[in-house]
């Protein structure tokens, strides 16, 4: 049984093995340890959002600067596509590492849901590439393709974020999905190359803002626990 003295003395979470820690120490230990283990077992979704937010902001932003006649910064087309490719590849690697590595050694329903959910992203990306190839072969003009593919890519991402929000009952994540769907669809109304600016700022910026909000929410949640 815990001593009344120790019950009144909050201390540090680190206690020698098998010793009876104080009440305050035990509570702060539980809070800190929950946070640590959750990060180890589930990874950092905020990091994935930030990586994709940065990729869209940089990639679509560079493409806009390369194709806009009003751009103050002259960016060669090859460089813009290189920036888009490298930033998206980096974000893809961050997503894979943050999804696969933390979940190793864990089996059960929630792991299955996570695995299938991330396979959906690969399926959607592959399907979208095939769709664009098909539309190109069918004679869709490069001007329309450049308007359709980035908008569709962002829209599909939004749908998947919303599905993620529904699966994990996370309204914030669902709201991010709804916002991203709206941005992807609305970008086409800006015409080319304005659509790229919309996707970079509202799409990429939206993901970055959400990453910050999620970090703040997690910090508050653990502080309240």
């Amino acid at each position: 049984m815990i001593s009344p003295e120790s019950a009144r003395s909050p201390g540090h979470a680190t206690c020698p093995d098998d010793a009876s820690p104080s009440v305050g120490a035990s509570l702060s230990f539980i809070t800190a340890w929950r946070r640590q283990t959750a990060r180890r077992l589930f990874g950092n979704p905020e990091l994935v959002l930030a990586a994709w937010g940065g990729a869209w902001l940089l990639g679509f932003g560079a493409c806009y600067l390369a194709s806009s006649p009003r751009s103050a910064l002259a960016v060669p087309g090859w460089l813009a596509y290189l920036v888009l490719g490298v930033s998206c590849a980096t974000a893809g690697v961050v997503s894979a590492v943050e999804t696969v590595r933390p979940g190793r050694g864990v089996v059960g329903p929630s792991r299955q849901v996570t695995t299938l959910y991330w396979w959906s992203w690969l399926l959607a990306t592959g399907g979208l590439c095939l769709l664009m190839l098909g539309l190109g072969r069918a004679g869709l003009s490069p001007a329309l393709l450049s308007l359709a593919w980035p908008g569709l890519a962002v829209l599909v991402s939004g749908v998947l974020y919303a599905v993620g929000g529904a699966l994990w009952q996370d309204r914030l994540y669902y709201a991010l999905g709804a916002w991203t769907v709206a941005v992807g669809a609305a970008s086409t109304f800006a015409g080319a190359p304005g659509n790229l600016a919309v996707l970079a700022l509202a799409g990429g910026g939206g993901l970055l803002v959400m990453a910050v909000v999620m970090v703040a929410r997690r910090t508050n949640r653990w502080a309240e626990a």
Binding site: A19, F29, T37, R111
Partner: peptide, 21 residues
């Protein structure tokens, strides 16, 4: 209440109800 077991129980509690590690 023993800290090592508390560490194990809290770690297991972060998993889903029917999940195993």
């Amino acid at each position: 209440h023993a800290q090592p077991r508390l560490r194990v129980v809290v770690a297991l509690a972060t998993l889903g109800e029917r999940d195993q590690i």
